[in-house]
Design a protein around this nucleic acid. Sequence first.
DNA 1: GTGAAAGCGCTAACAT
DNA 2: ATGTTAGCGCTTTCAC
Lengths: 322, 322
Amino acid sequence: MATIRDVAKLAGVSVATVSRVLNNQGYVHEDTRKKVERAIHELNYKPNAVARSLYKKTSKSIGLIIPDITNPFFPQLVRAVEETMNRSGYTVLLFNSDEVLKRERHIIDLMVTKYVDGIIIVSNTIKYEHLQHLTIPIVALDRVISQEIPSVSVNNYEGARKAVRLLKEKGCKKIAHLRGPENVFTAEERLRGYLDEMSSQEMESIIYVGNYELKTSMVETMRLLTEHPDIDGIFAGNDVMAVGAIKAITKLGIHIPNELKIIGFDGIELGTVITPELSTMKQPIVQLGKKSSELLLHYINGQEKGLRHYVYQAELVERDST
Amino acid sequence: MATIRDVAKLAGVSVATVSRVLNNQGYVHEDTRKKVERAIHELNYKPNAVARSLYKKTSKSIGLIIPDITNPFFPQLVRAVEETMNRSGYTVLLFNSDEVLKRERHIIDLMVTKYVDGIIIVSNTIKYEHLQHLTIPIVALDRVISQEIPSVSVNNYEGARKAVRLLKEKGCKKIAHLRGPENVFTAEERLRGYLDEMSSQEMESIIYVGNYELKTSMVETMRLLTEHPDIDGIFAGNDVMAVGAIKAITKLGIHIPNELKIIGFDGIELGTVITPELSTMKQPIVQLGKKSSELLLHYINGQEKGLRHYVYQAELVERDST
DNA sequence: GTGAAAGCGCTAACAT
DNA sequence: ATGTTAGCGCTTTCAC
């Protein structure tokens, strides 16, 4: 690998001059620049990012921590972040944490050690106290961690209310909620929305606990339907669980949406794949990724000083399950 | 951020000694080690990975280039790679290339510049000529790029034959193939398998072209079924297309598997989500990721010198669509 | 067993 | 407009 020295030697100038043309700053004579550029080209020289990082204490890369890329909600989010970051010349270091605090902390340490310029994190487990010692900017994505950490998220509470409201409008009299895991921010908010919307009309709430994934959801839906055969509406905590519920319901020979209506939350592609296609509260996933990236970039560049919290609205997408 | 100097000063030793205890090599007196460790702890010192990289010309990280994380085949693969790598102390830098050669080359340059210790790449577009100048090890994953690049892949040809054979055994008389995109290695191999299996019994082959994704697959399936209403078996080039086909077929009111049987390829989770559940040729996705990582690690450590090509077999998983 | 010092490849004062 | 040099934080000879 050619170094800046090799280029300098070949071009017959000093390394400082080469550095100047590389970074396009300071005065350098047109002829000299040409010479240097020719040398760079000839040697196929690429500046060493590591050396540069060491000096500048910045790496042109950011860390992205998510629970699990295998969860169909995240691939799109990750791509949106990557795209935005790449466009600004940043590389993204992706890590799956499985929401294990110990791993999250380890990942963060590792990132700091690698001079990442900022971190975007999706997590329920991590708290402000684990983050406050950091000197690089951080933004919480999809979930808000605390008031002190800037965030980009969706109004889960309102979205949930809208979802339940749709079920009611469609004539459902007994609406159950298949909630997401306990202590998970989004799940709690959606539950709260369901509860408030139900109690506002003195409807009895029926709650079963899922884990944001398919299998448990099927099992719980089965249980729900045997214990409450008169249910005519289900608000699932996310699309994956809704899909699980649809599978279970279909297996039971109950017709959707005639006998039972169901709505999910997230708006992932999976919902359009199953039959009947799933009605859902669609999150602006790409926007979430993009906005969080831009926000982080602004903090990195010092263009933003305040503590911003962006909240998007989930949008009702009605398909065939309601 | 504390540096090695701070630790040295606090412990009352030289930086060399600190480095020795950090790397656990060379002689250092037990008492000295204790002192140093105490200082490290007290300052919450973490060695600077960038400085270390600069000296050692290695970064304890590898690059992973995939077409698109949004394609449901990849998340699992990525996790398997990440897991294996992390376990060996390596970080993975993930990039989506969209199979655009220019981006792939850019990504590779970037990685080299960051001192990645090796690269795992999933690509059809890149060729040996674009890789031969690299001095770091590289392994091709899922597709073989050339004989000169070590690879870990699946026998798509054999898998395809098995798939078609199943359809025949189940009594299908007219079997169509919904193939993947042209010039994509896996798609070509699967097509070849289909063709050979058909001609071995002098069955007429009927081929429609999809793009490994849902929408096109639905459209093409519709066309296929209007132009050839007597089709009784479909071998789809991958699971995503198979799911698209199922949607189209169901919409047409044709019963699966009674009137028409269908089998996919890949074994992604999506296949178990739809109704009827999809029969498929399951790839050992996790193993692919794991093996490619281990192989790369072996090259990095110099434990492996030869050009290895590992080929796994796809496994028939029969569910409800056949 | 420990320390001094060179050097990894680059950038940015500071000179000239 | 260009060159010299210190230094980013670390590892590794080479002395002692």
